[in-house]
Design a protein around this nucleic acid. Structure first.
Lengths: 65, 65
DNA sequence: ACAAAAAGTCTTATATATTTGACATAATTT
DNA sequence: AAATTATGTCAAATATATAAGACTTTTTGT
């Protein structure tokens, strides 16, 4: 699996730390970190929560051509 | 959670049964059924596999406004 | 250069996605 | 109408996502 830089970028755009995002989404900092690092297979609901907090869509954050 | 009719429709468009789709995706028929029934929180990788088999995108199958 | 904050990594424990098998009902086919 | 196929559902077992805590490294700020 590959790093998810889109989340990192969207997070930066909102000036949020991994911890901030994790709390906003209701998940652990370690989980958020693992997702960004790409060694994780998150749950759809978690993906959707992340999207909503960051104001992005599933395709924008989790789809790769 | 609510029924995922988008998957059902995309599946119908390809003339695939739940079992067909499940096998193409490498998952159990029960799992596919549960996802369509909406009482499930599938994994991102599984969602992506479903999308690829059905020729759709994450937003098209799993995003709700 | 130092201090503090943020990010990355590991281990153990817990919650939950997914499997397997079996059975019931709905829909199709002959 | 009988037989076959597709769908829906349940219970028990297994695999894996996520939690919690501790520690290291990297980045940022002063």
């Amino acid at each position: 699996m590959t790093k998810n830089l889109k989340i990192k970028a969207a997070r930066a755009a909102k000036d949020m730390t991994q911890k901030d995002l994790a709390e906003a989404v209701g998940v652990t900092r370690q989980t958020m970190n693992a997702i960004e690092m790409g060694d994780y297979n998150p749950t759809l609901n978690l993906c959707i929560s992340i999207c909503k907090v960051l104001g992005k869509t599933l395709d924008e954050l989790f789809w790769e051509e």
